[in-house]
Design a protein around this nucleic acid. Sequence first.
DNA 1: AGATTGTCTTGACCGAGATCAAAGGTGCGA
DNA 2: TCGCACCTTTGATCTCGGTCAAGACAATCT
Lengths: 228, 228
Amino acid sequence: MLSRHIEEIRALPLFAQVSEASFADLTRGAYVQNFPSHAELITEGDPADFLHVVISGCIEMFASWQGRETSLFLLGPHDTFILAATIKDRPYLMSARTLEKSRLIMIPSEDIRAVFEHDSDFAKAIVSELAACYRGAIKGAKNLRLRTSSERLANFLIGEYHAHGARERFALDFEKKRIAKFLGMTRENLSRAFANLRSHGVQVDGQEIVITDLDKLIAFARPDPLID
Amino acid sequence: MLSRHIEEIRALPLFAQVSEASFADLTRGAYVQNFPSHAELITEGDPADFLHVVISGCIEMFASWQGRETSLFLLGPHDTFILAATIKDRPYLMSARTLEKSRLIMIPSEDIRAVFEHDSDFAKAIVSELAACYRGAIKGAKNLRLRTSSERLANFLIGEYHAHGARERFALDFEKKRIAKFLGMTRENLSRAFANLRSHGVQVDGQEIVITDLDKLIAFARPDPLID
DNA sequence: AGATTGTCTTGACCGAGATCAAAGGTGCGA
DNA sequence: TCGCACCTTTGATCTCGGTCAAGACAATCT
C-alpha cells in the first residue's frame, strides 16, 4: 500500500488512536483498489470480508427487494463501510456501487476483528464510529419520514450552501439524478420540488443554484440539529 | 436496587462479560423506576443523562418535527435505549414513552462512559450492542422503504406465527392500534391490509389469527433474512 | 339496564409522490 | 455539421396510504 494512503487513513478518527503495532496489523493485509464508475463493490447477503474506506470518489449504499431498490446513504472520502457487518461477522445488509471513478482501501475483516479483540483503543474508536453511524441512520429515517420531498430538498440546499462557504451562488456537486435518489424521490419529482422552491428564495439554472432569499428558504426548510 | 433486578440485567449481553468491579460501578448509581402507561420518559433534544434498560412493559421510541410524529421502534423487556447518545454524550435524537405500565433501570451516563473507558470487555459488549442496533435500524429502513403496508403486515404475521410455536391459530399479543403504529401505518389502513390478506391465506377474527394457507402467505410476504 | 368510552371496521375522498409519455437541452464523437 | 446519447423538465394519469366521517362492537361504570 502506498505510504501516502497509509498516512491518510492513519489520520482518520477510526485509526488515529491505535498503537503502531495494531496499525501495522491492520494495514498489512490491506490494499488499495481503483474502481470505475458504476461498479458494484459489494452485494447484500455476501459475507463481510472487508472493511472499506473511501479515499476518493463517491459511493452509493443501496438495498433491493423483489425488484424494488432504495438508496440508503451516499458516501464520500474518509467514510467507511460496512463496519457493523465486519464486526459481527454477519452478511452485508446493503449493496454498494460507485457513482464515479473511486479509490478505496480494503482491510480484511479478520484483521479488524483481531485487532479489535486486543486493542482497547481501537475498540473505543469503533464504538465512536458505530454510534455516529447509528445516529446518522436515525437522522436519515427522521428526515425521510417527517418531511415532504420539497422540505428535504430545501434542507439539502441549505447544507450545500454552507458547504460552499455560505455564498449565495454555487454549483451542485452531483447531477440531479443522484440528488433525487439520495433524497428519496424520482428525478421528475425533484424537478417539481425545485420548481416549488422558486417561491421560497431559490433560483435554479442547470447546475447553478442561487439563494435569493436565505431567510425565506430557512423559514420553509426549518433545519433542525436533531435531523440535519 | 433490588438484587433480583441486578441479577436480571447482569445476564444481559451488554453486562454479562464485565468484571464484578465494573458491574458494581455501573449499578451503584443506578435505580429502578416504575412508570404508568403513556408516560413520556425522555424527549428528543434533551442531554443523555441515563442509559435505560427495560425490565417490563412496552416502550415506543418516536420523533417529531413541525407537529408531525413518527414512531421508530417498539421496545420490550431486556432492550436498552439510548446507548449511542450516552456514549457520545450528545442529545437524544428520539423521544420515548410507555405504551403500558413499565419498569425500567436507569444508569447514569457518566458511569457508563467511565466504565467504558477502563473496561475493555464492556467496550466490546457495547460495540456488539451498537452494531446490532445499527443493523436493526437498517433492516427497519429497508422494511419500510421497500415493502407496501400489506407486505409488512404479512411478514409481521409470519414472525408472530413462529413466535407462537408455528401453530396455525394464535392470538395477537398487541392491540391492532399498536401494531399499526409499529408497522408504520394508520389503524384504518391496517384493517384494509388485514382484509387484503384474506386472499393470501389469513383469517382474522378480532385478536384471533388463523393461518389457513401458510405457503400462500409466504409466497405473498417473501420473508427475507436481510430484512426480517 | 343504560350510558359511556375506547377499539375496530368500512366507505368516501384527498394528496403526495410514482409512473408513463413526450419534448427540450446539452455535450460529444463521427 | 449532423446525429446520437443522456439528462432534465413538463404534463397526464395512477396508486398508495392518510384523513374524515359514520357505524358496529365490546368492556366498563353508575
